[in-house]
Design a protein around this nucleic acid. Structure first.
Ligand code: MN
Ligand code: MN
Ligand code: ZN
Ligand code: ZN
Lengths: 145, 145
DNA sequence: TTATTATTGAAAACAATTTTCAATAAGGAA
DNA sequence: TTCCTTATTGAAAATTGTTTTCAATAATAA
């Protein structure tokens, strides 16, 4: 889906959930809909202010929480300890992030069944969830590197 | 390896790397060698003070950095945003953590080859690294739950 | 329009981590 | 042992990331 459509789509769905559609929320949504990389809250703030200069950092955090609750964004853990957020489509998925330019891409269909079964057998743990993030080089950086 | 042996082993290896063997370092090492759960820095501090009461939080952080650099502990990301540390054996491995009692267990042999190949084909990314953490119920909690 | 109340942003509070720096002590040399 | 060098320590202060508070604002339904 195109970025501009994504904005409208998310906005409409937020409305349906009972949230009010405000200027700073639109700005944050637009930033996330337009990015191809995952962004930390302060980066999101800077970009959101291009669309609505009065946007506050607190609202960025609050909007991220709302969007995360609705499943539109995914919170990612970065190696440096910071957290960043990336747009996420519906359903279970993971992200791969480019080590060089930070571009992220979502992928679905993680087949961990064999791995999980093996871990279960060897550790005795009942596996209920998993956290998986891949890193590497995006197609663009692959050529340049 | 038994916990007490682990302490000596890590200590000896730190010495070999040129680090001085100090009381607070011994205390932190002992805490990590003895635990079966992953621990946050402030938890490590409290336990380390049982062995060397003057231990400071700063030194806990610094020692964790040293141990992480040597590959003796692994930094884990917790769902609540905090970070915790767990003992790690040499080589590539991952951890599974119990959702109920926080007990962690390391497992080796993560076979992600098929998954990685599939992601590479679908996203165009060259996959270079992965972050994987499993969660679930440890054998003990499994029975009680 | 007006009323209701969810939402906002500034400031303060909080929490995790790092930096600074003078005092201490580990380990090699004598 | 004793002495020296310098890595290491811990208290305090500084930074950074995130949350709470609260009076003012503005989105929506009536
Ligand atoms: Mn998955
Ligand atoms: Mn994290
Ligand atoms: Zn790239
Ligand atoms: Zn358990």
């Amino acid at each position: 889906m195109a970025a501009s459509n994504l904005v409208d789509d998310w906005a409409a769905r937020l409305r349906k959930e009972g949230y009010r559609l405000t200027a700073p929320r639109r700005a944050v949504i637009r930033v996330l809909a337009e990015t191809s990389t995952s962004l930390a809250p302060d980066q999101i703030l800077r970009r959101a202010r291009r669309y609505y200069p009065k946007t506050g950092l607190v609202t960025v955090y609050r909007t991220l929480d709302v969007l995360k609750g609705c499943g539109y964004v995914r919170k990612m853990h970065r190696l440096d300890g910071c957290h960043s957020y990336a747009p996420a489509s519906a359903g279970h998925a993971h992200h791969i992030v480019c080590e060089r330019c930070r571009a992220v891409m979502e992928f679905k269909g993680c087949d961990l069944d064999a791995l999980i079964k093996s871990v279960r057998r060897r550790t005795g743990y009942l596996v209920k969830g998993h956290w998986l993030e891949l890193s590497g080089l995006c197609p663009v950086c692959r050529k340049e590197a």
